[in-house]
Amino acid sequence: MTVTDYFLPRSLSEALDLLGARGPSLMVMAGGTVAMPLVNDGISLPTQVMGLRHAGLDELREEDGELYIGATVTLTRLLRQQALPVLSEAARNTASWSVRNMATVGGNLFTPPPGGDIAVALLALDTSVALTGPAGTRLIPLGAFYTGFMTNALQDGELLTGLRVPRVAGDTAFIKFGRKASNTPSVVTVAVRVARHDGTVTDARIALGAAGPHPLRASAAERVLAGSALGPEAIEAAAAVAAEESQPFSDGVASEWYRRKMIRLFVARALDRIWQGGEDR
């Protein structure tokens, strides 16, 4: 915990230079809501840390129907934006007011399960992430960003600089189920998006949180929905497949057994919400 250097770069290029010069031993921190607890308790003992709070990565703008979210946009700002209500809802259901004032959207992608609720909503929206290194920026799908528990596609010298949420078709629903009404870790988080034509599903996304080593899509369940007529039968079938293909875990919040039951229940509820036409854009 004895930090010898704490850098607060004022621009992306300064941040990339520091990362290039200091290498992988430089701990990168955004809002600090995940990293600081580990440092405070001596679990993480970095000597060099870079904070991104003032690095100018906090742009939030709409362009050509896309929403661009800078990596250090806070969850409070995500909550207040109005372009994508499902992201506001995800932010409202994440942590507490003070934490949302500090935690960042980019940082949420590095939050171990059962955290990472924002990422679940982003997955359902086909979000891409911008990874910037000395050679420039590459854009990859969020689903490809995750490579395992606490591992990702970032290469040495790269920073996650922002997210692009494209204009996508369909209705969305987001449900976070925890053990308290608010500020609660997830038992399961579900984000779904369903596009329909004449009652037939043309495109479906089912994204799950606290259901595996990282936020993930229930692809087999999505295939069950595709081409079906959205209704009780298809919803039940998709929910059952989602529960089966997910990889929930036991922790202090819930057991694997309970999570699997709740995945089935809340995938069905989220799809039901779309079928009943209760929600959304």
């Binding site: 600090g32 600081m36 607890p37 904070g51 507490s96 007011w97 003070s98 934490v99 004032n101 500090m102």
Partner: peptide, 23 residues
């Protein structure tokens, strides 16, 4: 000192934040 209890809340430019998580 984990951002979990709120007892260290202060206002930074008017917004509540947790001083245990702020360098």
């Amino acid at each position: 000192r984990q951002g979990g209890c709120g007892s260290c809340t202060v206002l930074v430019d008017g917004e509540p934040m947790l001083s245990c998580l702020l360098p």
